[in-house]
Every structure is written in C-alpha cells, then in structure tokens.
Write a protein that binds this DNA or RNA. Sequence first.
DNA 1: TGGAACCTTCACATAGATGTGATGGTCAAG
DNA 2: CTTGACCATCACATCTATGTGAAGGTTCCA
Lengths: 136, 136
Amino acid sequence: MSRLTGASRRLLRYYEEQGLIVPDRGANGYREYDDRYVDRVNQIRGLLDAGLPTRIIKQILPCLDKPRSIHFPDATPEMLALLTAERDRLTERIDVLIRNRDAMSEYLTEVGLCRALAPGSSQGTPNSPSVVSATS
Amino acid sequence: MSRLTGASRRLLRYYEEQGLIVPDRGANGYREYDDRYVDRVNQIRGLLDAGLPTRIIKQILPCLDKPRSIHFPDATPEMLALLTAERDRLTERIDVLIRNRDAMSEYLTEVGLCRALAPGSSQGTPNSPSVVSATS
DNA sequence: TGGAACCTTCACATAGATGTGATGGTCAAG
DNA sequence: CTTGACCATCACATCTATGTGAAGGTTCCA
C-alpha cells in the first residue's frame, strides 16, 4: 500500500488513526487494504495538500466516495453546509494561488525576455499587478 | 501593522525571524514598518496559504517584489530554476484543488437536485470523474 | 508623578503532519 | 530451526506555523 500510494507506512497509520481509512485486519492482525484504498489515500493526500485538516477531510470524504449515488441518504444538512463552506474556501485559495502563480510566470517570462535581449539595458514594464491577499 | 495585515504581532515577529521581512528600528528599538510591508505581509500569507514553506518564500519573494524591473540583476540561474520549479508545483497543486473543488460542487448540485425532486427515488448520474491525486 | 497603552525580548506551549527507532510477532524459504 | 523480510504497536522526536504569558522599557496624556 505504501508503495502504491507513495505515503509512508507511518502516514497510513496516521490516516487510520484519524479515522480517514479503516483497513480490514487479517487473522494475524495484518492490515488488509482493499484496492479502492489506493484512490482513497491519494484523494486524502490531495485534500491535505489543499490545506484541509484531517478532521474536515473525515467529514467530507464519505460524500466524495466512489459510487456517488449511493451516498445521498447519509447527507445531513450540517454536512452540506460544511461541504459548501469548504468548497468556497477552496475556491478562494485557488484564486490566491492562481494569482501568485501568474505573478511568478510573468516575472519568469520578463526575465527570459530580458535575458534574450541585450544583457545591460533592463527596463521592463513598470506595472505591478500586485500579488497579495490570503484566505485564512 | 498587525491590525493592517491581520497577522498577529507574534506572527510578524516570526516572519521577521525567518528573514521574510526586515523592518527598520526607531531610536527606541521599536519596529518601524514601511507602508509597503502591508502588501508584503499579505503576499507572504498568501504564499504560506499556498503551502510554500517560509524558507522557499524567502527565496522567491525578492523576485515578486514591487518595482519589478529593478530586481532583474539579482536573479541568479539557481533562483530562476527554483522559481520555475515552485511555479510548476503550484500549478499542479492548483489542478488538484480544482478537481477536488469541482467534485464537491458536483456532489452538491446532485444532492440539491435530488432534494428538489421526490425524496425517495435517488438515482444520480452513475459516472465517477474520480477526484484523486496529490502533488507532494 | 501616575497610569494606560503601547512596545521589546525570551521562552515555553500546542497542534498537525510526519519521521524514526525499539521491541516483538509472522511467514515463507532454505 | 533459523534467517530475512515482512508486519504490529508504542513512544518519542521534529518541523512549521502559531499562541500565550512573563518581565520590563517607552510614550503620552492627565
């Protein structure tokens, strides 16, 4: 499993500890990871990478599960509110990230152009789309 | 400054400690924050929020600074490589985030539709664009 | 001259995601 | 049976971004 997902053994145990995954156990006590856990773990890592804490991930994960239609029943209103809020937060973050990424790209292309031209006269566009702003 | 940026005093000190900001000191030892630091701090928070560690931010920050053209000179090749790499990482992360966000949205609209219809027959689109994948 | 409202540094605390190591069980092949 | 390659648990370490509080200086206003 660790090899399949790139998550260390310890990390898998941690996710389990946090209730994000619940692998079966063999008679010998060994964890037995269903194949679907590969996707699951990858998704968890994606969400963690997105900055969601494990406690939130635990909440929204069931909703994002595979055979989507089956999961409608257990969606409480609070869950939906939470999901909506998290989605909006995510959208804000995405915007910030995109702005910063574009600023980096802009800088890079400017430098690239400058490099491609004469290496002595540097006078780029003196504008400043300013990158700024945070979410939290 | 803390009020202007929303970052706690402690946090400003931390950023300073990490070399991200270097406020002047008055004769009495008090920190004197140039106005431009407001943008700077907000940008730092945005990048932190993007998941970049302070050590990386310290590296790329000079490049993103305001009067862009002035900073061309001190851009070493390593810096450019680093910046490019970070930008690409950022792009990957953005993609993952967008996929997850869209999955959430999709789920929400499906549930919304289901709620708007008869509360007994649930049969959404049985596709699964699968959310998955991480960056790190 | 006080006192409120700032500021300083230092230092310890915490939460979250991870790493690392110790100690011991299991399994399969030689 | 032993050895090597797994697995398990437990517990402590680490790094980052933060909070919090103590002990004391500065400024300004009354």
